[in-house]
Design a protein around this nucleic acid. Sequence first.
DNA 1: ATGTAGCTTGACCGCGGGGTCAAGTTAAAT
DNA 2: ATTTAACTTGACCCCGCGGTCAAGCTACAT
Lengths: 210, 210
Amino acid sequence: MRADAQRNAEKLRAAAAELFRERGLQVPLKEIARRAGVSHGTLYNLFGTREALIDEVVTEHATSRLDEVAQQALACADPWDGFAHYVEKLCELQATDPAVADVVSGRYPGAERLMTACAQSMDAAQRIVGRAHEAGALRPDFTNADLVFAFAANALLARATADTAPTAWRRQVAYLLDGLRTEAARTSVPAGRLTRQQVQDALTSLGEKA
Amino acid sequence: MRADAQRNAEKLRAAAAELFRERGLQVPLKEIARRAGVSHGTLYNLFGTREALIDEVVTEHATSRLDEVAQQALACADPWDGFAHYVEKLCELQATDPAVADVVSGRYPGAERLMTACAQSMDAAQRIVGRAHEAGALRPDFTNADLVFAFAANALLARATADTAPTAWRRQVAYLLDGLRTEAARTSVPAGRLTRQQVQDALTSLGEKA
DNA sequence: ATGTAGCTTGACCGCGGGGTCAAGTTAAAT
DNA sequence: ATTTAACTTGACCCCGCGGTCAAGCTACAT
């Protein structure tokens, strides 16, 4: 590989990393090239497909974030606390980092490294759920699939309300956790008084993003 | 208005009603015209904007459905049962009828009749929530805004998983309701054992729809 | 039967996405 | 310095969306 190609690949990787984290994995490839200061043709030359670029740019970042949260969860002495921590932090990650959100609730069959990392992450989730089940703290009918869909719903909601009702997802997550717990307990819900107008605005922007 | 125009308007209304209910309110206008067997120019002539068409075609349908659910809820002797019924049935409505889903979690400022109907529907929700609050059955920190966002999340999830995990949303709603209830109670969750593969497929299609 | 206002049509525009490739440029080997 | 293979570029293609409008057609009153 020639030195200039190397440089361009690096510029593209940097731009892609930025845009993926800002706006998610479906950001237009031409826009990545634009931000990198390079023709979009070059992007296609060097990476071929979006998924190849994702695999190179997102994998480490995403897996390290996800692993970190899972580790913290498993480090909690109390299995329920571990589970709750996992859910909260992972949802927070999704709300903060659209790239991670897309990794958690999406599939990119072409991104091999990413997909194996995902599988590992799923296993970690399985362990966290299992531990909470065994301790009798998590309702027994809750499955791993439910967890995945909860994350999916959170990703969608968080993205849709990011700039209009940034705490909406937190409250939903708090309610959900209370519904999942075996022993009755009301977690306190993060503040978030909204005026009717704010709710209207949130719905408006929600419509624009759907 | 000339007779042929009348006929075309009727054909367009019918086609729009169908497509809105099948695929939601963002369905391409040209596709509506196509299904009506009429040029898209005609659609623009007769209705001008998407929102005008929505207002004519969706309003009655949506409000009658929403009213019905709200009436049933208020008819429940027990305020909690009323609230739970409202949430479940409204979510079911969203899952079954994309048009209603878009009405519930979207805004269409150009569709006047629809918007006033929406406002009324919000008032009904307010009453249902208030009743549950007064009875002490619904956690006091739960607001109307939370309800709106819960519906929004449900709409997104239900649509994304419609053809891969059609009961996913039901389970999420059941968990949520248990989290919202003051007195501890574990509602039974609708069946929905999914294989890993089914979950993967659901995530795939989710990515395609985002 | 004919005139005309009302209506319909489909080609056309702008936009923005994905993707390709011939022509031109440049790094680097000699 | 020259050559050549590697690389870059941007014009170009496709598609589908929303939206407009001159030209032509048709319902209807006379």
